[in-house]
């Protein structure tokens, strides 16, 4: 066929247009490559009692800063510069301010006095914040994690008054404008609710370790303190450690190795 008549031209033209359009449609989702959202069963990390040991002899400010940064970016923690309105899940304080009960003029303080150490929610085994919450918005999971249910919090801040560690942050204003880049896979919070570290429970539930542990270059050890064969159990039975304000009976699960 060496002559293309008008009829044939139209046929070819319309077909090729169709082909181009169809091709562009297929570019969006190619049926062959299509993967629906179903998943393989999650391999959750489970424990009787999660705990964390922070090795003060090994950790340094660079590591701490990296942990803070990764945690806050992952969890969409806003960056409010005003100190009284800050939101923070993990941050650093002077050793002498963290362990400030009693007379700290001598012994350990002289060694660590001006060292910055990480502080976060202590995930208390006997948490005063859970005791006081009027709506069970904050509660203890069976594995010991003290969780905030942002859907339920009424923002009464009783938990902030009850926490002996200053670990809780209230959203005094809408946090979204203060998040540099929102992590789309994790929700933000809104003004009027209290938040805090939750041991990355969403990561544990998908089989991953807390983000600060991953970023800590082995200076933060995380594991099941209820399991006598776990690494953390062994370390804690070998080494000397401190816990914040132990005398208050809150049974904090953050151990500072010294």
């Amino acid at each position: 066929m060496d002559k293309i008549d008008r009829r044939l031209f139209l046929k070819i033209a319309s077909l090729s247009i169709l082909g181009v359009t169809a091709g562009s449609l297929l570019e969006v989702v190619n049926p062959k490559d299509f993967k629906d959202n179903s998943i393989e069963p999650l391999t959750k990390l489970k424990a009787k009692r999660w705990a964390m040991a922070i090795d003060l002899t090994a950790i340094n400010e660079a590591i701490i800063n990296n942990c803070i940064n990764k945690c806050h970016v992952t969890h969409n923690v806003p960056n409010l510069r005003d100190k009284q309105h800050e939101v923070k899940w993990i941050w650093q304080e002077k050793y002498s301010a963290v362990f400030n009960e009693g007379d700290n003029d001598f012994n350990l303080t002289t060694l660590y006095k001006n060292k910055n150490i990480p502080v976060l929610c202590n995930q208390c085994d006997n948490p005063p914040c859970v005791r006081v919450c009027p709506t069970k918005a904050t509660f203890s999971r069976d594995d010991g994690i003290v969780v905030m249910d942002m859907h339920r919090c009424i923002g009464c801040r009783f938990c902030m008054a009850a926490c002996p560690y200053g670990s809780r942050s209230f959203n005094w204003t809408d946090p979204r404008p203060y998040i540099d880049k929102i992590n789309e896979e994790y929700p933000t919070r809104e003004k009027g609710v209290v938040e805090k570290c939750d041991f990355c429970m969403e990561r544990l539930d998908r089989g991953e370790l807390p983000i600060c542990v991953e970023e800590s270059k082995n200076t933060i050890i995380f594991g099941d303190i209820g399991n006598k064969n776990s690494e953390i159990y062994n370390i804690l039975s070998r080494r000397t450690f401190l816990r914040r304000k132990e005398h208050l009976g809150t049974r904090p699960q953050i151990f500072y190795l010294i």
Binding site: K83, R168, F170, W172, T173
Partner: peptide
């Protein structure tokens, strides 16, 4: 605006 308009803080 939220309770930021008060003098309260963390």
């Amino acid at each position: 605006n939220g309770l930021i308009i008060t003098g309260m803080g963390r």
